[in-house]
């Protein structure tokens, strides 16, 4: 893989991260992060949709009148999301129930639309595909970090496995209790704010004047 293509793939992990730098796709990033498992499933779904939407739109880009491009994009994306939704319902039904409306909301996830508009309409299919995968994984990275903290401190488990021993809890005569606030929506926003804080302290060129 050439250097340029590698940059498309790894750029979105940190310097050009879709969630914390481009501020795209926040809704689902915050809503599905109560536990690690739905967060990982969601990240993979978004990666698949972004990659293939980029690929299809990049192939179509030369024959497409710009006046109708939004509606064509919506149709392509909606079709891909229906496919993902059916796959999730067939293979991981319980997670698909947990994700509820947020699977459908991948259609209006700004990452998908934003990458198609900003990248796929001006670049070749292979580069667009890599850009889609990179952005999907960059989004997944943030989801996993937020879900890690929320599940660990909110429920004492990780990916459903108990990490903090039962005997530590007050009910069992210990000293520890879960932080229930972690499970509520506002905490996801505050955690995301803190991630941006840490990230921008390390990357000074991203700071706003």
């Amino acid at each position: 893989m050439s250097n340029k293509n590698l940059k498309y793939l790894t750029g979105p992990f940190s310097a050009n991260n879709p969630v914390i730098v481009q501020i795209l796709g926040i809704c689902s990033a915050l809503a599905v992060t109560v536990q690690l498992k739905p967060a990982i499933v969601m990240a993979l779904s978004v990666t698949a949709v972004t990659a293939f939407a980029n690929l299809v739109m990049s192939l179509l880009r030369n024959g497409l009148p710009s006046r109708i491009r939004i509606i064509v994009q919506l149709v392509v994306i909606a079709t891909l999301v229906i496919l993902v939704d059916q796959v999730l319902k067939a293979f991981v039904y319980d997670v698909s129930k947990q994700l509820s409306v947020y699977v459908g909301l991948i259609i209006t996830n700004c990452i998908v639309m934003g990458r198609v508009e900003a990248f796929a309409l001006g670049n070749g299919p292979w580069a667009s595909f890599l850009d889609g995968i990179g952005n999907g994984l960059g989004y997944g990275l943030i989801l996993v970090v937020i879900a890690f903290f929320r599940e660990l401190f909110g429920a004492g488990t990780l990916y459903g496995f108990r990490v903090i021993p039962e005997s530590w809890y007050i009910a069992e005569g210990g000293f520890y209790s879960n932080n229930g606030l972690m499970l509520f929506p506002p905490m996801a926003l505050i955690l995301c704010g803190c991630i941006i804080w840490v990230h921008r302290s390390k990357n000074k060129d991203l700071q706003e004047k």
């Binding site: 501020i23 905490m187 996801a188 926003l189 505050i190 704010g193 941006i196 700071q207 706003e208």
Partner: peptide
């Protein structure tokens, strides 16, 4: 480092 979106998230929270 918090200017812009960072503080906006925390305020919303």
């Amino acid at each position: 480092a918090l200017k812009g979106p960072g503080i906006a998230f925390i305020i919303t929270g």
